[in-house]
């Protein structure tokens, strides 16, 4: 909660940032987040139900950002995503699968939807996921995976796909050329990374770059303790003084219960 930190000055600004995930089913939205939050990967992850609300702090220079990450929980499947999902979101990661051309088209329609529905200042990142499937095996071992104490993650899932991919050469699985996606992202004003939730490639980078691009000073000055809420119009907050926290635990609740 921002209000807990106002007193401490600029030394350790602690900003809550709501980040929403979007993308076609099974492109790896949840996997990317699990890599970022828990640094783990599951080879056969179930379609998302359950953990749909994760938080992760990240330190950026002099301040700590607290990502509140919202997963779609499947509500988008029949175009029934609630407006509440987009509200106050300062950042969005739109994911597609580099081995499925159609998933990029879907990603583009999500970007349009965000531009229509969400806060106009939202920072959007495009993630071309599952890049490990189209990368020669050795290159997939990124510094991120190695630096962690669970190297199993990257190696314990040798993957039938990689094996079979080997016969054709992994690049043949690729359906979305990197430069094509990059060109689209540049044109639409999005951050762009190719990622692999499996190896960790690009995952941390995407969240770091978002953090750098988020107008933190603006969020701090415009939300007096209102948990980073930002209105539909973006420039909100002067009247936000009367907001209440229903759980009533006030300032110290912030870290304990993800509220």
């Amino acid at each position: 909660m921002a209000d807990a930190n106002d007193a401490s000055g600029s030394a350790d600004k602690h900003v809550q940032v709501k980040l929403v995930l979007l993308g076609e089913a099974a492109v790896g939205k949840s996997s990317v987040v699990m890599r970022f939050v828990n640094n783990e990967f599951q080879a056969n992850k179930e379609p998302t139900i359950g953990a749909a609300f994760l938080t992760q702090k990240c330190r950026l220079e002099d301040r700590v950002l607290r990502y509140e990450i919202w997963d779609t929980a499947g509500q988008e499947r029949f175009h029934s995503l609630a407006p509440m999902y987009y509200r106050n979101a300062q950042a969005a990661v739109v994911v597609y699968d580099v081995t499925k051309a159609a998933s990029l088209e879907k990603a583009k329609s999500w970007v349009k939807e965000l531009q229509r529905q969400a806060n106009p200042n939202i920072v959007i990142a495009l993630a071309g996921n599952k890049v490990d499937l189209v990368t020669p095996a050795p290159a997939a071992e990124t510094s991120f995976a190695e630096s962690e104490d669970e190297p199993d993650d990257a190696t314990a899932t040798p993957g039938e796909i990689s094996a079979s991919a080997g016969s054709h050469g992994p690049e043949s699985l690729r359906q979305v050329p990197k430069d094509e996606a990059q060109a689209y992202a540049t044109e639409a004003g999005l951050l762009f990374f190719e990622t692999s939730a499996k190896t960790g490639e690009g995952v941390v980078e995407i969240f770091t770059e978002i953090a750098k691009k988020i107008p933190i000073e603006y969020i701090l000055s415009s939300t007096r303790g209102a948990a980073g809420r930002n209105g539909a119009g973006g420039a909100r907050g002067t009247a936000a003084g009367g907001d209440v926290n229903l759980d009533g635990a006030g300032k110290k609740a912030g870290d304990a219960c993800n509220c």
Binding site: F53, S80, M84, Y85
Partner: peptide, 19 residues
């Protein structure tokens, strides 16, 4: 109401609107 619907969705509920 949307908040409660999100809880349902998170628990595996299926949403179809506008049909």
């Amino acid at each position: 109401a949307q908040g409660f619907c999100r809880v349902t969705a998170v628990r595996g509920g299926t949403y179809i609107l506008g049909r």
